[in-house]
Design a protein around this nucleic acid. Structure first.
Length: 498
RNA sequence: GGUCGCGUGGCCGAGUGGCUAGGCAGAGGUCUGCAAAACCUUGUACGGCGGUUCGAAUCCGCCCGCGACCUCCA
């Protein structure tokens, strides 16, 4: 029996604005599509939160026994600025590089940061520019179905017709078409549209536009929302299980994505839509223009006015997961400091759990109460994660489990009251949720020679202590501390941390 | 202006119509030559005013405050 049969999963579906029992279309397979970044500059820490959130979704679905095809795209074409200039092209001009060099450069940087945050790579990571034929086909299908029209070489989606035919438009974002018309901004080629709510699915390239492809309508490029529609269809089918993305993409991006899929094939792309919420900095939206922003690397090395020191990437991951993905989260120095200690605490119990995984005891008299408590807590981890991926609550349960682990560690007598099975479950659940589901991992141990040197110093200090030479022992400890090396005297000897 | 969401103890942050969230900080303790670290124990709460209810921080209304989206955004 797979775990997902034992633990029903509930997901807050943005489409219905309520929590729904999750039913996979074709279990054990699941199609998961998440809108990836537009690679025109360094990845934003807010993006990182979103991708960490969906990384946990991917990890947990897999943990439950589903076979997940996780598609996360790279948008490298079609995403325009207000003035109609392509984001990639503009950056290429600034950096004096080919647009594809820009895409590659920032894709590489994105991957590096994702790896630092210990997110698993998606199953497929398609690039928009690599799927121009698919997008052209989709435009054609939309035209054939009467939901697209060509004007001067550009093709627009007929939003009003779609809205009146299907009553699908606006369901996700709660928009009413007529309200949209009121506040429509002045955009490029607005006069070509039959209706202000229409949006471009293919755009004719003007002379200075260097990213261009041949199409039946013009030499041009696809509209921004189209790549997700085309690529999700290609790799996950016309209708798949879960579509995710940041809440700021709900409108217009996701709404239009749904419209395009319906327009092309008559069905909506995903059964469940998940939206992760925004990361704030000191209570406010991050914004480059007013300086209220911080990059991942600044967070790591502490090089920012907003923080007092650098933070371990896993501390930041822990910090993200302490909140629910659907809530806004306020990043601040004090919050990170708290997370740092909490994260350490969670990890300190990990070696104990590791040992229990291979434990073998023969409990003469079973401690029913403790056994039940352990079973309940282990079970609770699944219940909380199945409740719309509530990582915050899951971590609270893990902290409770860590207390038991510490208790066992300090009082090995407790082991005699537990069966091997219980201990293994305890160890496997803790390690499984901390490492596999939440994706928290210990930073690589420093195995360099410095470790050996410190061990020698610790030995010398031990000798000094044995001779009650406190002056020398304290000198070793204090000077090591001054270099950032902490000496910890424990019951079973002395350890250190860098 | 329109739409949606939020307001929880010193801080961060879950959550539910009645039952301990959790983490950090604070307090007390264990350990220790002293310390640090680690671990254990522990207090404080639900923006304001009304209403529904046996009972609401949780549901409803109003008010105050904050935020997001409204064709750039994860």
């Amino acid at each position: 029996m797979r775990k997902y049969e034992k633990y029903p999963l509930y997901i807050h579906n943005s489409l219905s604005r309520s929590k729904e029992l999750f039913k996979a279309i074709n279990p054990p397979h699941i199609g998961l599509y998440v809108c990836g970044p537009t690679v025109y500059s360094d990845v934003h820490i807010g993006n990182c939160r979103t991708f960490v959130s969906f990384d946990v979704v991917f990890r947990y679905l897999s943990h439950l026994g589903y076979q997940v095809r996780y598609v996360r795209n790279i948008t490298d074409v079609g995403h325009l600025l207000d003035d109609g200039e392509d984001r990639m092209a503009k950056r290429a001009k600034v950096e004096q590089l080919e647009p594809m060099e820009i895409a590659q450069k920032y894709t590489n940087g994105f991957h590096k940061v994702m790896e630092i945050f210990n997110t698993l790579p998606p199953s497929i990571e398609p690039q928009a520019s690599g799927h121009i034929p698919e997008q052209i086909e989709m435009v054609q299908a939309i035209i054939d179905n009467g939901y697209g029209y060509e004007k001067n070489g550009s093709v627009y989606f007929n939003t009003r017709k779609f809205a009146s035919d299907s009553s699908v438009y606006g369901n996700l974002s709660g928009r009413v078409l007529d309200d949209l018309l009121q506040e429509t901004r002045t955009l490029k080629n607005q006069d070509e549209k039959e209706d202000p709510a229409d949006f471009a699915i293919w755009m004719k390239a003007d002379d200075r536009h260097i990213m261009r492809w041949n199409s039946p309508w013009s030499v041009g490029f696809p509209g921004w929302h189209l790549e997700c529609s085309a690529m999700s269809t290609k790799y996950l089918g016309k209708t798949f299980d879960i579509h995710g993305g940041g809440s700021d993409l709900k409108f217009p991006h996701h709404e239009n994505e749904i419209a395009q899929n319906n327009g092309a094939c008559g069905c909506s792309p995903a059964n469940y839509w998940m939206h992760s919420n925004m990361l704030l900095l000191n209570g406010k939206k991050m914004s480059k223009s007013d300086g209220n922003t911080i990059t991942p690397h600044q967070l790591f090395d502490g090089n920012s006015e907003h923080i007092s020191k650098g933070y371990d990437p896993m501390t930041i991951r822990f910090f993200f997961l302490q909140a629910h993905y659907s809530s806004t989260l306020d990043l601040s120095d004090t919050a990170l400091q708290a997370a740092e200690k909490g994260y350490k605490r969670l990890l300190n119990a990990l070696p104990i759990a590791e040992r229990l995984k291979d434990a073998s005891v023969d409990g003469k008299t079973v401690d029913e109460e403790l056994t039940q408590k352990i079973k309940d807590l282990c079970n609770q981890c699944y219940i909380e994660m199945c409740n719309d991926f509530n990582t915050a609550k899951t971590m609270a349960v893990l902290f409770e489990i860590s207390s038991i682990l510490n208790e066992i560690d300090q009082n090995p007598k407790l082991l005699t009251g537990l069966t091997t099975e219980t201990l293994v479950e305890l160890g496997e659940t803790y390690v499984g949720f901390v490492e596999d589901v939440l994706g928290l991992k210990k930073e690589a141990e420093d195995t360099s020679k410095i470790g050996d040197v410190i061990e020698i110093l610790i030995q010398l200090r031990q000798e000094a202590r044995a001779n009650k030479n406190w002056a020398l022992s304290d000198q070793i400890r204090d000077q090591l501390l001054a270099s950032g090396i902490t000496i910890k005297d424990g019951k079973d000897g002395t350890t250190f941390s860098l």
